[in-house]
């Protein structure tokens, strides 16, 4: 494991400018290629469009929570280099919230109807997760907020984005490109979070128990939010979407043919992937995974 100084040197604002702002975001508009739009097959199908709005609302809610937590981490950071890093993460999360909000507009939500749409469709468990995380942020508990934001929230977001990207890569390049930029950012947040948590726990091993308790509580809300998302899913392989896909190019993720899975199977696959990844990351930083329990 590297020291804090070595770690931080890979996560400077300069590095962020070169890799994100002047890197994968160069030439994009609201996160996707200029001129791309939501596909006609989606806009023309009321059921699928409503479902896309509901899913996008969850992304907006999660990113708003991540924005608030990242901004709080700037002020709570124990060293100025970490504070600088979290300034870049704050802007990443603000950008994600903005591009997903823009997608709601692109899907036909009226500009003055966005907040109502968010309020009406946000999953209760996702809101409970946000409350629990932001309560730690308000207390300026740097380690707890870092674990919640960079390991659990960004960990969940990373896999959800990957799954959505796999499903939309062929039929909806605009959304897939938006997701690809967010995936690149989340990967950076996960790397920083894991390394920084490891250095903090090495300095203060007594806090491992706090991290385990927090993971047990917040993981519950992660799984519950995924269950709420898939409970609303339409029947698999909706005709218009299937028709839009090149028959020779099926969506694959984690070795599974996504087009062949029912919503319940998709939920199981995503929840399993998220949890396995949590376990692996926790094991690398010396924390024992705790089975989620309803708080």
């Amino acid at each position: 494991m590297r020291g804090v100084a070595d770690l931080i040197s890979s996560f400077t604002v300069q590095h962020w400018l070169e890799s994100a702002a002047q890197g994968h975001l160069l030439g994009t508009e609201h996160g996707h290629h200029a001129g791309e739009r939501e596909p006609d097959w989606l806009l023309a199908d009321g059921t699928l469009r409503a479902r896309a709005i509901e899913t996008t609302v969850q992304l907006v809610v999660a990113e708003r929570c991540a924005l608030a937590a990242s901004a709080a981490l700037v002020g709570a950071a124990p060293d100025e280099a970490s504070a600088r890093y979290f300034a870049t993460q704050t802007l990443d999360e603000a950008r994600h919230a903005e591009v997903f909000r823009q997608r709601l507009l692109d899907l036909g939500v009226a500009r003055d109807g966005v907040e109502d749409a968010v309020r009406d469709a946000a999953h209760p468990s996702l809101l409970r997760f946000a409350d629990a995380l932001l309560e730690r942020a308000d207390r300026k508990d740097f380690l707890a907020t870092l674990v919640g934001a960079n390991l659990l929230l960004d960990g969940m977001a990373f896999h959800v984005f990957e799954l959505l990207h796999a499903r939309h890569d062929a039929p909806n390049p605009k959304f897939a490109h938006t997701l690809a930029g967010a995936i690149a950012d989340e990967r950076r947040h996960l790397r920083f979070g894991e390394s920084r948590i490891a250095t903090l726990l090495r300095a203060d091993p007594a806090r491992r128990a706090d991290v385990e308790r927090l993971q047990r509580e917040l993981s519950y809300w992660v799984l519950a939010a995924l269950a709420e998302e898939f409970a609303q899913a339409p029947p698999p392989r909706a005709p218009s979407r299937r028709a839009a896909r090149d028959p020779g190019k099926r969506a694959h993720w984690q070795g599974h043919d996504l087009d062949a899975l029912a919503p319940g199977e998709l939920e199981k696959l995503l929840a399993h992937t998220v949890l396995e990844e949590f376990k692996m990351r926790l094991a690398r930083i010396g924390v024992t995974y705790q089975t989620p329990v309803r708080p």
């Binding site: 708003r64 924005l67 608030a68 890093y85 300034a87 999360e93 603000a94 919230a97």
Partner: peptide, 24 residues
Amino acid sequence: SGLVAIAPNRMTKVFLATQAVDEG
């Protein structure tokens, strides 16, 4: 970054996020 938390609306939060990275 502290102002992000108390900003009265989403647009203001986004602007302050850009300001936070400028200051960083």
